[in-house]
Design a protein around this nucleic acid. Structure first.
Length: 805
RNA sequence: GCGGGUAUGGUGGAAUUGGCAGACACGCGGGAUUUAGGUUCCCGUGGGCAACCGUGGGAGUUCAAAUCUCCCUACCCGCACCA
């Protein structure tokens, strides 16, 4: 019988609204459990069918934890600053705050429609001044500790968003958000010194329960490499400092390459005989977009600086200096020593420009034909005076020590991670609470003046020269210096979207506090987040940024733990029918509203969990949804028919205990699909005879986290006390899960021949005897003798036969 | 190029981690109920008449391999001139 999901779901959502069963209690004596999902960006399109997957998963986990006696914090909020809202505001001339409010209302309605057990009294909205007051406060603390600074440097500039981007926001040379080309532009920007935390961000991963691919991706992104810094003298007397991971190859350095932007190039310009060529190359490199730079990477380009040379400090040889864009200004020192014999890129460059290739590590092929890059013990140093005969691994420390003694180099660690570009030339973000005074320089806004509220502006469009719309608000911009009281100007850039999301999980602990970002009591009680599930796409963005902020807050004594999240898992994407990406242009977008209208929220919840391996991408199937609806209908029919008897039916005892075990274990491992399959198997079994009230009670408690509405209705219908969700989680008795007789596979010479039933834990001889008694086996044994018998307890027996002599 | 991952029936996916491959579900076929359709309830469903053959392909280890090792192939994700 199909149940009336629309009526039932509405009814129970109303009950929860009143009874508030999801309220978290700070300071409660029960053990705490803090389950977190990534709060959504409230877009105008409303909830996407991708949202319910991670949300339902953590909802199930937290509901189970509640039933297990935990004081659960499972909060929700809105990451509401951001470009889509701003662009919508520009197009429709509506204030972004109004758009945001409307979108949040819509999201809230949809989230409640799906029956998620969020604590609705702790909702956080990053655009609320009482929230971003503390985002600004954290920025000021970073400033005080020298971790926020303003710097002019080439930055990633999105040509369409008219806005700078962090390195993390540039994907294959285009803007992560809009797909437009990104170019380099010199701009003065606020930066956050995340690189100061690079080593700790790597090291502390070891003690975290993060899935391995997250750890690997973060490590690779931070990109630690060890080597040495070496100082070369130029013929002009200047020092050229390079970073190398292969100091052992120093004798093979036959030229040097500087990045086109290197400061020394400018300094030397008057001395250069080919200054025009050099300037032309610099201009060409600057105008290339990131995309062009990477696409044109196949062929090396460059110009030799005519009129200046360098001296190799180990052998005194004079070597030429080039500029080339394969050397990046932003990594290392922006200059390299080139060892063409032992580096593929240098080799390629040397071949094109006719530089000398000198072998200093023997053991590879002819270095004139290809570079030999092995960095282990396969290579032995040659042509390197005091290093000759050492392996590469031995030579690296030897030369490093030598360089240190001579004062021309030292061991050095470098990271690929760059400091975080923290300003955006846009309106809909947190104002940066800094003031520029001609006399006093950059001054922080006094904390008692926070929040610095985003003023209303006429137009939300950035100016043509790429300044924030705030720059046109002269009466807001012009202010007085907090230091000298003289005339000063406010910073008009705003913070990136990642600011508000870098600490929101802390605010949930104490969302209405107006004295601090959260009280010490709340922070001590709830920290850290016990389990954080989110998308892989945030691994090197939000997840890394928030770890950085949290470590900083730990350092200044605001939070009690080194790391924000004890455990991190990740879900796969929901794809459209047939495994293609859902998109408006394909017309295959599934709207949760439609699914709920047709099948109900419980079915949608169940289906998104049943769809497949939680960690992997899964394709939506309208057909398969019906199977989940059918399952709930079948459970409903059992309840409606009325159970017979009070206690657990003895015949069902074993499967009930097996199901409790399976569902309990699977939820912890996020194997929701097999947990549901186990409950389906149980229900199929219960259909064979009329279940008792005791049987039904266990089933309903197990099913409650998955399908809370219909379970609550059945719980009431069957006359059980209280609420199903408030019951204790069913316990199982291991002894009751075991079968008394086991069906063992009987193999002959490793091939399955038959099966045999024996008592559980029967000893080997009994099993072998039983196997031989099987008619099929007996027939196969005619004229044969057993050479060996392998018995795997409760599983199989394998008889190895050979003809009798 | 480097790093990570995936490949199992017509489909989504299971497989106690080396022990009866295909749980559970969709789909399909058959039957019952129904005036009929839908719903619901049973039964069947990897291939092959069979011996047997079957987990992307090929070798290997083992009494025993989807699972371990080596070599391929295809696809997906991340990074990409990082010295």
């Amino acid at each position: 019988m199909a149940y009336d999901f629309a009526r039932i779901e509405k009814k129970w959502q109303g009950v929860w609204e009143k009874e508030k069963p999801y309220a978290a209690v700070t300071g409660d004596k029960r053990p705490k459990f803090y389950g977190l999902i990534e709060f959504p960006y409230p877009s105008g399109q409303g909830l996407h069918v991708g949202h319910p997957r991670p949300f339902t998963a953590m909802d199930i986990i937290t509901r189970k934890k509640r039933m297990q006696g935990y004081n659960v914090l499972f909060p929700i909020g809105f990451d509401a600053f951001g470009l889509p809202t701003e662009n919508y505001a520009i197009k429709n001339h509506i204030h972004p705050a109004i758009v945001t409010k409307k979108n949040i209302e819509n999201f809230t309605r949809q989230l409640k429609m799906l029956g998620f057990g969020f604590d609705w009294d702790r909702v956080v909205d990053t655009t609320d001044p009482t929230y971003y007051k503390w985002t600004q406060w954290i920025f000021l603390q970073l400033w005080k500790k020298g971790l926020a600074y303003k710097a002019t440097m080439p930055v990633n500039w999105c040509t369409s968003c008219k806005c700078v981007l962090a390195n993390e926001e540039v994907v294959e040379g285009v803007c992560e958000r809009c797909g437009s080309p990104v170019v380099q532009k010199e701009k003065s920007q606020w930066m956050l010194r995340i690189t100061a935390y690079a080593q700790r961000l790597i090291d502390d991963l070891d003690e975290l329960d993060f899935i391995e691919r997250v750890k690997i991706q973060q490590k690779n992104w931070i990109g630690r490499s060890t080597g040495a810094e070496v100082t070369f003298k130029a013929t002009t007397g200047d020092d050229i400092v390079v970073f190398t991971t292969r100091p052992d190859t120093l004798f093979g350095a036959t030229y040097m390459v500087l990045s086109p932007e290197h400061a020394l190039v400018k300094k030397w310009m008057p001395k250069l005989k080919n200054a025009d060529d050099v300037r032309a190359y610099q201009a060409a490199a600057a105008s290339k977009s990131d995309l062009e730079r990477t696409e044109l990477s196949k062929e090396k380009t460059g110009v030799c600086l005519d009129g200046v040379a360098a001296v190799n400090p180990v052998n005194g040889r004079e070597i030429p200096i080039f500029i080339s864009d394969y050397v990046l200004a932003s990594y290392g020192t922006g200059a390299i020593m080139a060892v063409p014999a032992h580096d593929d890129r240098d080799w390629e460059f040397a071949k094109k420009f006719g530089c000398e290739i000198v072998e200093v590590v023997a053991g590879g092929e002819d270095v004139q034909k290809a570079a030999f890059t092995a960095k282990d013990d396969t290579g032995v140093l040659v042509n390197s005076e005091f290093l000759n005969g050492l392996t590469v691994r031995q030579a690296i420390p030897a030369i490093t020590k030598w360089l240190e003694e001579k004062g021309i180099g030292k061991a050095q660690v470098n990271y690929k991670l760059r400091d975080w570009v923290f300003s955006r030339q846009r309106y809909w973000g947190e104002p940066i609470p800094m003031v520029w005074c001609e006399k006093c320089g950059w001054q922080p806004l006094p904390e008692d003046q926070l929040p610095l509220v985003l003023p209303d502006v006429e137009s939300y469009e950035p100016t043509d020269d790429g300044e924030s719309p705030l720059s046109k608000m002269t009466d807001w911009v012009n202010t007085t210096c907090p230091c000298c009281g003289g005339p000063a100007r406010r910073e008009t850039d705003t913070m990136p979207q990642w600011a508000g999301s870098s600490w929101y999980f802390l605010r949930y602990m104490d969302p209405h506090n107006d004295k601090a970002l959260a009280s010490k009591e709340a922070l001590d009680y709830w920290s850290p987040v016990d389990w954080y599930n989110g998308g892989m796409e945030h691994t090197t963005l939000h997840l890394l940024y928030s770890r950085f902020w949290h470590k900083f807050l730990y350092d200044i004594g605001v939070v009690p733990t080194k790391e924000p999240y004890a455990k991190r898992t990740s879900h796969g994407m929901i794809l459209g029918e047939g495994g293609v990406k859902m998109s408006k242009s394909r017309g295959n977008v599934v709207n949760p509203n439609d699914v709920v209208a047709k099948y109900g929220a419980d079915t949608l919840r169940l289906y998104t969990m049943f769809i497949g391996d939680f960690e992997k991408a899964a394709a939506w199937s309208d057909e398969a949804v019906k199977g989940c609806k059918k399952f709930l209908d079948r459970v409903w029919a059992l309840a409606e028919a009325g159970p017979e008897g009070e206690d657990v039916t003895p015949a069902n005892e074993r499967i009930l205990h097996q199901t409790i075990k399976k569902v309990s274990d699977d939820i912890e491992e996020m194997k929701f699909n097999t947990a549901i399959a186990a409950m389906m198997t149980l229900v199929n079994e219960l259909y064979k005879s009329k279940p008792s009230k005791g049987d039904m009670e266990i089933l309903l408690r197990l099913l409650s986290p998955f399908a809370p509405h219909v379970v609550e209705e059945m719980w009431q219908m069957l006359g059980f006390d209280g609420r199903a969700m408030a019951q204790s989680w069913p316990e199982y008795d291991e002894a009751k899960t075991v079968e008394h007789t086991k069906e063992l596979a009987v193999q002959i010479n490793g091939k399955l021949k038959s099966t045999v039933s024996v008592p559980a834990d029967a000893d080997d001889d009994a099993v072998i005897a039983a196997a031989q008694a099987e008619p099929k086996v007996a027939r196969a044994m005619e004229g044969m003798e057993i050479v060996k018998a392998i018995v795997v307890k409760n599983r199989l027996v394998n008889l190895i036969l050979r003809p009798k002599k």
